[in-house]
Computed example of a mutant assay.
Amino acid sequence: MSQAATPVPDPVTARVLVTGAAGFVGSRVVEMLAGTTDHRVIALDVVESPRLCELASLPAVDFRAMDLRDTDALESVVSETDAIVHLAAVRTQAAKKRPKDAHDINVGTTYDLLSAATKHGVRRFVFGSTNTIYGPYQDPATEPVREDRPWVPQGINMYAATKLASEAYLEAFAGLGGPEYIALRIGPIYGPRVSPGSNGSLSVEILHALDRSERPIVSWARDSVHSFVYIDDVAKAIVASLSAAQTGLAVNVVGAPVTAETFCSRIVELYGHDPSQIEWKSERTRYQRVSQGRMREVLGFAPETTLDEGLQSVINWHRKQSQPR
């Protein structure tokens, strides 16, 4: 895979706090910051895990198990940092089942982080948002959605609502002298270690079905369009946001639009099987076309990982995970 140039670290953001550090995105961000930049990383997550132990062994990474709702502990760690990458959240399916938890954690902890950041002079706040705040993408003829287009958030889910509220707090605190911010409206992410139950995990679910000699079942209609983005490209966008010259705005972080049929058929082919095995339920539709323009302008790059490269990396990781230990 081609490698994007890593932005030169800004001295004022040399100490970076990453929340949700054990998660799919957070762990890759910590790895990238530790391996390709001079930043010192404070990695936060609510519980210790084998994954966090791996991260804690990396150079310049300080792991701390912490519940973000512990405001005293939170303020103490924020006082040590120059920049915050806030990725911890109750995700889509859990937010649907536990909406109050989603509000308390997704919105409440964002508010508390911003409050502490304002108090202690944190310079930069990079927020992991979602492009589902634009709605369910039901119009097949829609133009790619831009961040500055007037829109009404009709049909959004609970997770998207918490992210939308948090984005409003980013701007409100900036107006009170708080940190400069970038809100990254991230598309569906795929790649090794993808989170179960996400749209990106469809790739792994297909591989598991093929391993069981079963027909992969896909709930999406064949012509549904997704803005899948590879995990390394998301991490690069987050790292680039720490030193981007423009702030105080939202930036879409998405891949090129691809149909469900292309995405699913291609991973089946790369795995050495016949795509005609796929059973299409056509229970869900989406036409998720999202502009990459501001990502190119503000962050200086667009995702470089091709679909075949990304899917092959999922296959390689899956095969390694499936080997006897």
Rank of each mutant, 00 (worst) to 15 (best):
I186E: 01
N199Y: 11
P150C: 06
N199H: 13
E180I: 01
I206Q: 13
A161I: 00
Y181N: 07
R185M: 03
G175E: 13
A165N: 00
F125R: 12
P196I: 03
R146N: 06
H120P: 06
A141C: 07
S166F: 00
A172T: 10
A174P: 02
R149L: 11
N199C: 13
P196A: 03
R185Q: 02
I186H: 03
P150A: 05
I206F: 13
E180Q: 15
S166R: 01
R193N: 14
V145K: 10
D139M: 07
L170Y: 03
G200W: 09
Q154G: 11
L207D: 12
R149E: 15
R146S: 09
G200K: 11
F127C: 04
P188M: 10
S203T: 15
L202Q: 15
F173R: 08
A160M: 04
G175Q: 13
H120C: 07
D148H: 12
I156P: 01
A168T: 10
N199M: 14
G178P: 12
E171C: 09
I133V: 15
S195V: 05
G191W: 08
E147P: 03
L164E: 00
L184M: 07
V145Q: 08
E143L: 13
P192Q: 12
V194I: 14
G200P: 12
T162E: 00
T162V: 03
A160C: 05
I189W: 08
P188S: 15
H120W: 13
R193H: 15
S129M: 02
P153Q: 03
F127T: 03
P144V: 01
V194S: 12
I206R: 14
N157H: 09
A172G: 06
G200V: 10
L176F: 09
H208G: 08
E180Y: 07
R185S: 02
R185V: 04
M158A: 10
P179C: 10
S201C: 08
P140A: 05
R124E: 02
Q138F: 06
V204P: 09
V145H: 02
V152N: 04
I182T: 06
W151K: 00
K163R: 11
L176E: 14
Y190S: 07
V194F: 06
V194C: 15
Q138G: 13
A160K: 03
L207G: 12
P140K: 08
Y181M: 09
N131P: 00
K119G: 01
H120T: 06
T142Y: 00
I182W: 01
P136S: 11
P153V: 07
S201P: 04
T142A: 15
T142N: 11
P192W: 12
R185H: 02
D139A: 06
A172D: 10
H208Q: 15
P150F: 09
G187D: 02
G135S: 07
G197M: 08
P150R: 05
R149D: 14
H208N: 14
P188W: 04
F125Y: 15
G197L: 07
I156D: 01
R193K: 15
W151N: 00
A165E: 10
R146Y: 01
H208V: 13
D148A: 12
I133K: 00
G200S: 11
Y134N: 04
R124Q: 05
A160W: 01
S195I: 04
I186Y: 02
L202H: 11
E167P: 04
G121W: 02
G135M: 07
I133N: 00
E171I: 03
A183V: 04
F127I: 03
P140V: 03
M158Y: 11
P150N: 06
G175V: 10
G135N: 06
